[in-house]
Design a protein around this nucleic acid. Structure first.
Lengths: 335, 335
DNA sequence: GAGAAAAGTGTAAGCGCTTACTTCGGGCGC
DNA sequence: GCGCCCGAAGTAAGCGCTTACACTTTTCTC
């Protein structure tokens, strides 16, 4: 069933059918009704390939995300998908894992699909020149379609970033911990991403601003698995700390498990904050105070910017949207 | 940059370029090398639309999933995506929510995109005739492309189901609870899906098989939010129970929260099982014993079947794959 | 070394749609 | 009543690719 069949059945030309499909004003209402009823009757849907061939747009957005089973990214994808559908766009999802080469492969694959834009969730890049080669594929891709980073940063033409102010949030939380009397604050982290670096910088500035030393052994990098974190903390008898600033909820829950198994009181003996305010944070016991990462807002900003750009409407679009975020207080903090 | 440009630059015909792109054995290695180097040099990627037009397949699978931010579905989508990519297929993801009409809309949207097959994650249907009208869109869709249900069931030509034996798993767990001395087992559930019905049936059969009465007030349907579950249980003073069989981990964690806030000992005073063995189950305290839903296997079965069908290879494909599953024991059970 | 088979390459006809350009026909002014 | 104009519909030329079929080399075979 193609446009020729419909044209024949409706007694018009294929051009007219095409115009009806695209709701062109150049067709009379009467003809539209006639054609539409035939389309309805025979359940005709235009072939997207043929259409894309002509229009060179498939109203499809590529989403690249390292790990969709991660709660934070899943939430982001869910929001993005829903917003984009509202604007008539579909999503092709690719889960790349964290490996550079795989990401590169997927990006070129998505570009080959003639996507209208690309969103990269949680792909974090350092802004510095050292990362030049690792970000080349993004810069290259941006020559073909606009690229949007969610919680990532890259200074490049046609790359638009929306991210949360990790630095400030971590700074604030650390300062509050110090003011409430903590002196040995463990920085618990699982990666060396740009975002992680920002959090570390916030942590260190806070220590300095309050006249506390920055100690190397209070920065701990571990794999983000609850039991792994717990076990490592239990093993590291040498480590002494009265509070934990974690860069992710999973890490923080690991710290809670550690405290629970050592029968430490939370927050009295150990004060803990997480990051992302994910479902884990209400699941643990005690419930975790966690910095909210405002995924929904980031997604809204991203889709808003994207629509402006794709449809050429509206004025300036900022390449760089940083939004503040702060601690959602629950039971693992006393400030 | 299209196939004509490449043909010209390589000094061959477009047919040859096309054959090189498709790695046809009918082109000599020498020519292939030549053409490939040109393609490489100019960064040529074939236009998928044009390709799809000719082949009538875009090597794309539609995935319909009610809620990607649900841990179980996210894991499923992650697996599916990775398996399908291995076979050279991409995924278009649609998050439909749980509403019938939205699902229907998305299915026709996906079909219009000329997907090669459709996977519906966690779309659960009763097999009985009463559901006739609610499943019509699936039956209709199946006339166009094969449809695969993951943890769903529908007896229909061209619809392939892979699901876990909810009935048996719930039966087994309930029997074990009874054998370990529990008498008042609360069935905690959040929906009336097919899967939920199976779990209920397992629970009831187990009670009967052990000579226990099936009591209406021990079946509780609540919204799947941890705090909501906790609060409802706290309010229902009239309810007396010594154990909980929950149809989802979130519900079970709610029950744990309830027990903790009433200072009940787990599992001595209250024995609890969850379903899905999600990340929540290792996060709670005590950690939750949960029935593993074997997402990964279900995804493998589904993709395996799909490839057989799409490529017409291999013999019979069962329309109905039910796999057993069982309790992953942690700290909320004593058997 | 001629003839046939095999291998490599080219030609051209679609695939289903969009759209610039063309045609048609009826209403209007004079 | 004639010519003009304008809205409505049609014609046909792509869009970039695949592939059946045709054609030209090469490689055997005897």
């Amino acid at each position: 069933m193609n446009i020729y069949d419909i044209a024949e059945l409706a007694g018009v030309s294929i051009a007219t059918v095409s115009r009806v499909v695209n709701d062109s004003p150049r067709v009379s209402e009467k003809t539209k009704r006639k054609v539409r009823s035939v389309m309805e009757e025979y359940g005709y849907t235009p072939n997207v390939f043929a259409r894309g061939l002509g229009l060179d747009s498939m109203k499809t957005i590529g989403i690249l995300c390292p790990d969709i089973s991660d709660a934070y990214m899943a939430t982001a994808v869910a929001h993005l998908e829903s917003r984009l559908h509202e604007h008539g766009y579909d999503c092709i999802l690719c889960c790349s894992g964290f490996e550079q080469s795989v990401k590169e492969k997927y990006v070129s694959l998505l570009l080959a699909k003639r996507i209208d834009a690309l969103i990269m969730v949680g792909s974090t890049y350092a802004g510095s020149g050292e990362e030049e080669s690792r970000t080349r594929y993004v810069r290259e891709g941006a020559k073909q379609v606009p690229i949007f980073l969610i919680n990532g940063y890259l200074d490049c033409e046609n790359v638009y970033c929306a991210y949360v102010d990790d630095y400030q949030a971590t700074y604030d939380v650390t300062v509050q911990m110090i003011r409430s009397g903590r002196r040995r604050i463990l920085f618990l982290c699982d990666s060396h991403s740009y975002s992680a670096a920002q959090k570390l910088a916030g942590y260190e500035s806070a220590l300095k601003s309050q006249g506390l030393p920055v100690l190397g052994d209070l920065k701990l990098y571990v794999k983000n698995r609850i039991h792994t974190v717990r076990d490592i903390l239990l093993e590291r008898r040498d480590l002494s700390f009265d509070s934990v600033v974690a860069t992710d909820d999973g890490l923080a829950v690991g710290a809670i498990k550690y405290a629970n198994s050592k029968l430490l009181k939370i927050p009295e003996d150990l004060c803990i904050t997480g990051f992302n305010n994910s479902s884990l944070s209400v699941c643990s016991d005690p419930e975790l105070s966690s910095i909210d990462n405002r995924v929904e807002e980031l997604c809204n900003i991203t889709v808003g910017n994207m629509m402006k750009i794709l449809h050429g409407e509206g004025g300036e679009v900022s390449r760089n949207s940083r939004i503040p975020c702060r601690l959602e207080k629950r039971c693992t903090t006393d400030f």
